[in-house]
Amino acid sequence: MVMRVVVIRVKILETNQQVELDVKSTTVRELLLRLGLTLSEHIVFKNGEVITEDDIVEDNSEVVVFTVKSGG
């Protein structure tokens, strides 16, 4: 069995969590769904650029999830 060493790293700003997902490639939409995060409350960045929920994130990439809700 081959051990996979490549993962998608996700940084969630709201909870200050770093999560590693062992998937080869996924859309942003599926990624948020897996993390239990809503599409309408989150903006996702890859390499400092905003990407859309239809974009595909591949192995070995790092994304940042920003929660848009107001402070209070």
């Binding site: 309408s40 409350e41 920003f66 929660t67 848009v68």
Partner: peptide
Amino acid sequence: VPEKESALYAILNNLVKPEFIQCPYV
């Protein structure tokens, strides 16, 4: 305007940094 759009407008115009600040009473 949905909240996500106004947040995106703020980010694209560099008005705020993408960081999460929340009121402690929320």
